[in-house]
């Protein structure tokens, strides 16, 4: 079982790196789906089957589809890829990579020096999750429901196509 974990971990890392390096948004998106799927395998291996399924259904299923819709709506294709290629010069990488390396080193240091020694991971089944979700975390669930509602209303409102432009200086640039 150990080997399964390392393989999926490798797949996850690889596909994630591919996500942030791709020029074509659709390619990146597909790599992200792969990353999410392999992550759900890891969840499964860690003893969280319920969440693993949620990851596939909601993340890889629903949310990624939203991205695809938007990419199709905006018709991002070859030009975008070319533009990305121009933007992603090697010099752009230097600063963020240094910063991230420091952050990563610190994270590693803290994780490795953490006091409680390693324990075996245990399965937490969906029943326990459901009980926990609807007893101590009920308020949290309701808040999450309200957040989603607000998200839906907000997205619908923001996404409305308006003829008039909010900013008067941009009027000339606005196509009919």
């Amino acid at each position: 079982m150990d080997i399964f974990f390392y393989i999926t971990a490798f797949v996850t890392l690889f596909s994630t790196i591919m996500v942030i390096t791709r020029h074509n948004p659709v390619h990146a998106l597909l790599y992200l789906v792969i990353s999410l799927l392999s992550l759900s395998v890891i969840f499964f291996l860690l003893g969280a089957p319920f969440v693993a399924l949620l990851e596939i259904i909601i993340y890889a299923g629903a949310i990624m589809v939203l991205f695809i819709f938007v990419i199709m709506l905006l018709n991002l294709g070859k030009e975008t890829a070319a533009q990305e290629k121009a933007w992603l010069k090697p010099t752009v990488w230097i600063g963020p990579v240094i910063l991230s390396t420091i952050l990563l080193a610190e994270l590693f240091y803290l994780i490795i020096t953490a006091q409680p020694p390693s324990y075996n991971l245990q399965t937490v089944d969906s029943k326990a999750v459901a009980i926990s979700l609807f007893t101590p975390y009920l308020i949290g669930v309701e808040l999450a429901a309200m957040l989603l509602m607000a998200g839906v209303v907000g997205a619908a409102h923001i996404g409305q196509q308006k003829k008039t432009v909010l900013h008067r200086f941009l009027k000339e640039e606005e196509p009919q």
Partner: peptide, 16 residues
């Protein structure tokens, strides 16, 4: 975002 990262580094550094 760089500000955020630097902040995170600072906080973690303190912990380290």
């Amino acid at each position: 975002i760089i500000g955020l990262v630097v902040g995170a580094i600072l906080i973690l550094s303190i912990q380290v």
